[in-house]
Amino acid sequence: MSMDGADVLKRALTEDEAAILEAWYISLREGTSLQSGRIREAELQTQAKAVFGQLRDGLSSGGVDADADSYTPLRENLADISRSRAIQGFTPTDTANFVFSLKEPIFEALRRKSAADASALAAGVWAAGKVLDRLGLLTMEVYLASREEVIGRQGQEIAELSTPVVRLWDGVLALPLIGTLDSARTGVVMENLLQAIVDEEAEIAIIDITGVPTVDTLVAQHLLKTVAAARLMGADCIVSGIRPQIAQTMVHLGVELNVVSKATLADAFALALRRTGRKVVRQQATVTGEHR
């Protein structure tokens, strides 16, 4: 029965290629993907033609099982198309419709070929539905995977962007933290800080948490880990930028940092300079605005 359906479908695809492609182009043109201007009609037609050819090839040796080896080129091609659409910002509907819009032209062709034979028509429709549904699902899978990838990459970029280590003075580093600290970010922060300590031969690292929205027990634990790792490397840490509300929350939650902490980065920097045996003095008492 199913082989029968595959044969019917194969015949329709081979003999009616021009008509099916023509109808598919029309339905693709009516779809929203073209109107959004993200892809040109010529490109869309080239993709459609390639997919159609590969579908026919796959069908002729692999039956209606779209997971068979004979469908590998088609699956790879669809995956590429789907991936590029995910990156270009197509909607899921647009992406899935690329395959699903092929259904109608094929059903039409099947009807033209086997109008007289109801059972052959039904078998052909079933075969076409099976193959195209599987391919449609595959497109969606790849689409989603690519979106996840994009999101993951963005997350990583944000993490990297938001954890710079700045050199304030010889041997004094500052690490202004922005955003919530989770374990993944703590890892990045720690690595960056420790590497910077090695590179700059730093004695003191100031961790500024002005940009950290909340400090709960977990965040505190992550902070302490970073401090402990820096200490193992031989650098002292000062935590600064603890806002009034955060200080209260921390006390209420019973979070203890057990490290030297200062209210502002300036205070921490002054302490760091003092510890490294330096002092900031005003050059002339009368000159204002000059601090060094």
Partner: peptide, 26 residues
């Protein structure tokens, strides 16, 4: 203890060994 590598420091902290009582140097 001197010259600990960053990766080693991270590992020790993750293992919960913060080597309290040992002085460290770069």
């Amino acid at each position: 203890v001197a010259g600990m590598r960053p990766a080693v420091a991270i590992t020790l902290v993750e293992l919960g060994l913060e080597l309290t009582g040992i002085r460290t140097a770069l």
